[in-house]
Amino acid sequence: MLTVKALLLLLLILCALAVSFTRDLLSAAVIFSAYSLIMATVWQQLKAPDIALAEAAIGAGITSLLFIATIARTRRYEE
């Protein structure tokens, strides 16, 4: 179980770093959605199922949809 938790935290850090280093904003939005999904699993492991449910619904669902809708109206690549 400890291995799974360590793997989740490692993936979380990797995703967080990847979001800030990606130039393609659409990829960044998708990686951010993956970050939220991993974060929801971590919340569940920390025995906070209420927060996990909110994180999965808002972070992985609504936020990425709003980001993608915004990218569709503006530029896709960072200058």
Binding site: A52, A57, I62
Partner: peptide, 24 residues
Amino acid sequence: IVFHGHLSPGGGFAGGVVCGAGFI
């Protein structure tokens, strides 16, 4: 999730967001 907010994890906010995501 909305109806079982006082019994299980979740509540008005999380359930409302799930419903909104369905409409989106």
